[in-house]
Design a protein around this nucleic acid. Sequence first.
DNA 1: TTCATAGTTCAATATTTCATGAAATATTGA
DNA 2: TCAATATTTCATGAAATATTGAACTATGAA
Lengths: 124, 124
Amino acid sequence: MKSDDAIQSLSALAQPSRLDIFRLLVKAGPDGLAAGTIARRLAIAPNTLSAQLAILAQAGLLDSRREGRSIIYSADFSAMARLLVFLTDDCCGGRPEVCAPLFDLARSCCKPAVKEPIAKEKVR
Amino acid sequence: MKSDDAIQSLSALAQPSRLDIFRLLVKAGPDGLAAGTIARRLAIAPNTLSAQLAILAQAGLLDSRREGRSIIYSADFSAMARLLVFLTDDCCGGRPEVCAPLFDLARSCCKPAVKEPIAKEKVR
DNA sequence: TTCATAGTTCAATATTTCATGAAATATTGA
DNA sequence: TCAATATTTCATGAAATATTGAACTATGAA
């Protein structure tokens, strides 16, 4: 990832409505949500939402697809991961303990992504 | 972490000079770098740099301490981790494979900082 | 003291970003 | 086709942000 791309992603997320939108879509998972649903849930005017979605999509953080009259938006998880990698690039500098919080992050994210559905219940 | 705090951190990082500064300090590790050193390395005017450092510090992303005439800035790794957690909150939504990239992130960061190798690799 | 070095603060200007209303486009069903 | 729904585009004024020169504070050395 280039610095310009990271700036674009960070700028896209650095706005209250857009951060809410993105986090809502992160929670929604790959299925995503229709623009109208997002507008209703977050109480954002349709035209304002459209502009926000365009900014997030342009930054590569969202995918979109049309389904009937609706346009479904979903978070691009791999783009997200690339951004996080960029931010933490060479974070250790020879001191593995420095980035220990990052491992805690990965572990707290969800149950270890092994093939078997280890835990039935939801994380948190 | 509250949304406002995340916005502040993201806004702080969403600017070319500040992103460069932060990443330089991430690489520098806990020892940090003097403001003047950062200014020289990144070719930023001292007063401009000062403003940028203040914004990053206000966002909680940097620590600072005086050493003689110099003021040493260093990245706050735990603040960083909190931001990443916030962004990926509930990212799984019942689909562990969705956040697999985050595990790749943690592993690529540096050598696993775990007491014992949990599960098996092969997360893909 | 006096001076030089290291950073910061302030004020002004230039630029970017934001939310909104009005109008336009796309899809579906009657 | 027409009407309704879903979303986007455009133009605009207001607000936030960035950069710069000049002045200011703090530390250490002569």
